[in-house]
């Protein structure tokens, strides 16, 4: 602004007006953004919190939140957590291995590019289309199921079902592994060649390098990735909805059922379930942030 106010005397008034307007604009737009976020993100969160603790007569109650710890909903949370943990664990290991192979010098560039861009697509290819892709392939009438049957292998006869817990695991891996590849690749690229070479030059072997340098440096990123994948699976709605139609009890599906009015129930219960979910996701996000910070301290120079 000093540039403008130092202009000639005749112009002095207009720049001042402009400075006033320019001062108001940021306040206006930033304010608008915050109002939007408060109204449509903060408000709903508070609404969930209040309704979860409000009886139908408008008094404070813990009966709905208590139900979360009852047999049925505790099992729902446990199943959701188990599904998330299993897919996150396999996703982390398989994604890390894949990303590591891809980052190696021996990997041809075209393969690296193909995997990177495919990961971007597959990590986002979730929901309804993914469910139908797996149904088309591994459903009771899926192409692979039929081919294997023709070859004498009856996977459904052997106890496999795409619409079970392990079927969901398999389907979730289709977006969990690529997501891991995407989030761990920068960490792997940050592993400087000099570290390995310095370790070699100082007389260490591959084991020494990984034991003292590689694994300690990657650990926080890997843990953080695990948490992100866990949260990613925990909140998934569309994929299990289309696949299992409620056969496997999962928190987001239960909330959806309570809301879309299939079951006549108190809306408060749905809010209590959502509250539980927000607590889980909030904890995951906090842990993730802390781990990121732990990683970050080595990146600072």
């Amino acid at each position: 602004m000093t540039d403008l106010t130092s202009a000639g005397g005749a112009l002095r008034r207009r720049p001042k007006q402009r400075a006033g307007l320019a001062g108001a604009l940021p306040v206006f737009f930033i304010g608008l953004f915050f109002i939007y976020v408060l109204a449509f993100l903060g408000g709903p969160a508070l609404s969930i919190l209040f309704q979860a603790f409000r009886s139908s007569t408008g008094h404070f109650t813990t009966q709905y939140v208590d139900q979360l710890f009852g047999h049925y909903y505790a099992k729902t949370y446990a199943t959701t957590a188990a599904l998330s943990a299993v897919t996150a664990l396999i996703g982390v290991v398989a994604g890390l291995l894949t990303a590591y192979q891809i980052q190696r010098q021996s990997t041809p560039g075209w393969l690296r590019n193909a995997v990177n861009s495919f990961s971007g697509v597959a990590a986002n290819f979730a929901g309804i289309p993914l469910a139908f892709a797996f149904i088309s392939t591994l459903g009771t009438q899926g192409m692979l199921t039929l081919w294997l049957k023709a070859a004498g292998i009856d996977i459904y006869g052997a106890g496999f079902s795409l619409f079970s817990f392990w079927g969901l695991v398999l389907t979730y891996l289709y977006f969990q592994i690529p997501l891991m590849v995407i989030i761990i690749t920068p960490a792997l690229q940050g592993m400087r060649r000099e570290w390995r070479e310095a370790a070699m030059g100082l007389g260490g072997n591959g084991w020494h390098y990984w034991r003292h340098v590689g694994i300690p440096i990657l650990t926080p990123s890997v843990l953080a990735s695990f948490i992100l994948l866990f949260g990613n699976a925990f909140a998934s709605y569309a994929t299990p909805y289309a696949l299992t139609s409620g056969l496997v009890p999962l928190v987001p599906i239960e909330i959806g059922n309570l809301m879309s009015g299939n079951v006549i129930a108190d809306p408060q219960l749905g809010n209590a379930l959502s509250l539980g979910m927000i607590v889980v996701m909030g904890a995951a996000m906090t842990l993730y942030t802390l781990l990121q910070r732990w990683t970050g301290r080595w990146q600072k120079r």
Binding site: P44, A235, S274, M281
Partner: peptide, 19 residues
């Protein structure tokens, strides 16, 4: 910007309709 992760879509739509 990361809050929409903490309040997943299913919870968000519940809160929005409830409010």
């Amino acid at each position: 910007s990361v809050m929409p992760f903490v309040i997943p879509p299913i919870a968000l739509i519940q809160g929005l309709t409830g409010l």
